[in-house]
Each structure stands twice: as C-alpha cells, then as structure tokens.
Write a protein that binds this DNA or RNA. Structure first.
Lengths: 245, 245
DNA sequence: CGGCCGTAGTGGTCGGACCACATCGATGGT
DNA sequence: ACCATCGATGTGGTCCGACCACTACGGCCG
C-alpha cells in the first residue's frame, strides 16, 4: 500500500478518500454516496458531527460545512440537541431548493421557466382530469369560489397557488407536483403579478380557472390540457412582451 | 426603535436581521436577497469571508457555512486565493444540483422522474424539430452513427447522453435543457441501464434514436414528439414493470 | 523590456471552547 | 405505585484564533 508514510491519526475511513477537491466537498460526496448505496436509510439518524468528522479524518468545522450543504439540499435534517437525520428523501424534500432557481432568475430566463411550467402544468392538469376524485374536485372548487369572492391581491394569490397545488396533487405524480411548487414559488409569482395585475388580470384569471375547473369536472383531459396551457401561456406571453420591449 | 437594548459589537447590518432560525440560515437568506434585489450582479466579486461575517455580525465559521451552502446550490463560486464570486446565474449553474434528486431517488420515484422526463423530452424534441439547424442536425447524426458503430456499453451510454443533450440544446430553452441534463445524470442513467441493457435494449435504442433523427431531419414536430415520448416511455414501462412486480 | 520572485491577501482547514436545546433518567412528592 | 419536576448528559449551533494553500500583483533583477 503506497499510502502516505505517516500513519497515525487516521481512524479508519468509512470509504477510501481520493485526493480531489476540498475536504468538505469530499465529505459531501461520501455522505451522498452512503445514502445512494443504501448504507443510510431515509429517516435514519447519523453519527454525531464529531464522530463523522473523526471517521472521515477531517475537522468538525469542515464536516459541519458538508452537513450544512446537504441540509440545504434537503438531503439531511439537523435537529438541535437531538442529532442529524436523513430526510424522507421524498420529492418535496429534495426539490425544495428548486424554488431558488425561480427566485434568482431574471429576464429571458423567466420566460423559459414559465415555458417549462406551461408544459408541466398542462400535462399535470390533463392527468388530474382523468384521475381527480370528487373530494379533490370539491377542494379545487372551494378555491375557485373563494378567489371569486375577494379582491385582496394577497388572498387571490394564495387561492391561485392553492388551486394549482391541488390540481398538481391530483395528477398523482409527487415529483411533478414538487417541481411545479418550485416553479410557482411565492416570491416568483409575486414578482410577475406585480405588474401583471394591473390589466384586468384578476378577471381573466378567474375566467381561466373556471374553464380549467369545468374541464376537471367533465373529466376531459384534452380540454384540461388546453385550458391549463392557455392559462399559463397567457402570463408567458405577457411577460415575453414586457421584456422584449 | 425597539431594538435590543444592548448595543455594542454590531458593526452595521447591511440588512436588518430578524431573529429567526440559525444565524447561518439568516446569512444564506440575506445573501440570496442581495442577489435577488440586484445588489449583487452575476459574476461580481463579493467581499471577503471575513468582511461579510463582520457586516452581518456573525462569525467567519457561520458565514463560511452559508457560503458553502450557496456554493453547492450553484449561486456562488469560491476561488481559492482569489475571492468569492456570484455565478453567471444561468440555468446550468443553478440546476446543477438537480441531478442529486435523480441520484438519490429510488423505487416509485424513479418512475415519476422518468415520467417528467418523458414530458419534457418529448416537448423539447418537438421544439427541436422545428428549430434545429443543419449544423446541429449533423452533430446529432454523428452520435447516431457513432452509437451504431460500437458495442461498448460505456461508449453507447456516452453517445446516448450526447444525442439527447444536443437535441435539448436545439430546442432553444436553456432551462429545459439543464433540467433534462439533471434528469439524465450519468449515475441515474447508469443505474437504470444496468439491468435494462440485457434485453436487446441496444438495438431498440438505436432504432428509436433513428426514428427521432428522421423526424428531426423532416422538421416534423409531431413525429418528433411521438418518437421521443415512445423512446422514454419504453424505459419508463420497463422500469414500472420491474418495480411493481 | 520581460520574466522571475516575493509578498500581501484570499479562501481552506484545523482545534478548542462555550452556548442552547433535547432527551432521559433520577428524584421527590402525591 | 404513580406522576411531575429537575438535573445531568449529549447533541447541534456559534464563536474564536491560528495556520496552511493558493492567487494575484508589483517590484526587482537580468
């Protein structure tokens, strides 16, 4: 073994650590690998920061940076005073960070984002039309009527989000729903609406939501797809126009 | 101002910092906010870690954790010995982490992921059919023929990835291309192929790629969409069967 | 004038100390 | 015997200060 000649404070690497990048980056990869290989199950508790640091032969500071990174990515969850745990690793956990993309994108990229959302949302709505239950349908209708009953932009925005969230959930694909959630993050939505709402957007939104709702009630996927695509496309076109000025 | 009565070691907050969550989390939000508000431009260099820590009134350690987190998210980039910089904030930068979702998802979630990919990929291919240039078309064809000329799984996988990447690029939506890139991350693809390739998958893949290529040459969006959907759907169905056993 | 090299400044790593919080067992009262 | 309280222990959270590794820049020397 042509390891480093000095052998002492190296208490058994859980995995052999090649020399690439920063030690923190390495730690991140190793923990990710442990999870990917099934050595760490969802919900399972990890060793303490101090233990982990010792095992990988790095300082606690570096290990903390690695853990923090994985925490932000939604892979780990640190509970103060209790320990570090692997999240459930479900779509919602992992795709939480997806929202930052929407929050930090500007200009032409916002249009691209909206285009992606149009594609996913229209398909999700079509799927929902085929699968939605009466209970879910009632929930959707609740948000439609609630949105029709108020003029408060904040409240309207909230019901708008809930309306689409409910539909995405009914589509039966959690991953898609989580992505749409990120694509419709509050700050993202708010930014676009800021100028959009000045052009009778409320009325148009109510009309379009009603159309989508009708298609869902009729369990008509194609109508739902078209209505949803038109709905998102409306905003998309407006944004496109207000940028390409 | 009802601030904390104690006022001393608090060298002017760049933004006022409400008391919520960990100081690191706060720092992350504040830096994100600085970028979102345009106070930090893409490519711009940030103050030093030591300065930033002092400005937000936290320790360098905590600030480093915040920076590391944003680095992993693709928002910041730390260059050893030089400084910390805001990335270009383009789709590729911010969606790099998207691949971990694919890498850490298992079981039913893999099918969901593939379903999302099918939706996006088919649309992207349709868009590409309408917009692709002759040069791009030649590039695509290169990967088709190269893939037909080898039996090495590694090489086949590489050309498979490049094939789809080229098409995604031709679709003209960087954001969508970046997402598809994540959805087709090497480890993800490799995991699925492992068992898939045992059933004459190579031949089938070649046939399907040829069909997609033909549709692109003909600039026929609908044919391209169908071919791409079938291509991804093929894998999707196989995976669905091998899980729902 | 150009290449070399030293130096100042930056991020990267380390170790230790202390704090805030969660957990669980021991203790004491009922 | 039971339950509430409180303390000890262990955990993540924060801070500090030191040093290392690397980059960038400018002055020095050929």
């Amino acid at each position: 073994m042509d390891e480093t000649p000095t052998e002492e404070t190296e208490p058994e690497n859980t995995t052999n650590a090649p020399q690439k990048g920063t030690v923190t980056q390495r730690a991140i990869e190793q923990i990710k690998a442990m999870i990917a290989e099934g050595r760490l199950e969802p919900g399972q508790r990890l060793p303490t920061e101090r233990d982990l640091a010792a095992r990988l032969g790095i300082s606690r500071s570096s290990m903390r940076e690695a853990i923090r990174a994985l925490t932000v990515l939604g892979v780990l969850e640190a509970r103060h005073g209790s320990g570090i745990y692997v999240t459930r690793l479900e779509a919602g956990d992992l795709l939480e960070t997806f929202g930052v993309v929407a929050d930090l994108s500007r200009g032409p990229r916002l249009v691209e984002l909206l285009e992606v959302r149009r594609i996913l949302e229209s398909t999700a709505t079509a799927l929902a039309a085929a699968r939605i239950t009466d209970d879910q349908l009632a929930e959707v209708e609740k948000h439609v009527t609630a949105m029709n009953a108020t003029e408060d932009p904040e409240e309207i925005l909230a019901h708008d989000l809930a309306f689409h969230r409910e539909i995405a959930a009914a589509a039966g694909n959690e991953t898609m729903a989580a992505m749409l959630e990120g694509l419709s993050s509050r700050t993202f939505r708010a930014r676009v609406w800021r100028g959009y709402q000045e052009e009778g957007a409320f009325a148009r939104t109510r009309r379009e939501h009603a159309a989508i709702h009708r298609a869902l009630v009729a369990h008509d996927p194609e109508a739902a797809r078209a209505a949803a695509a038109a709905h998102v496309g409306e905003v998309e076109q407006w944004l496109r126009a207000h940028l390409g000025a």
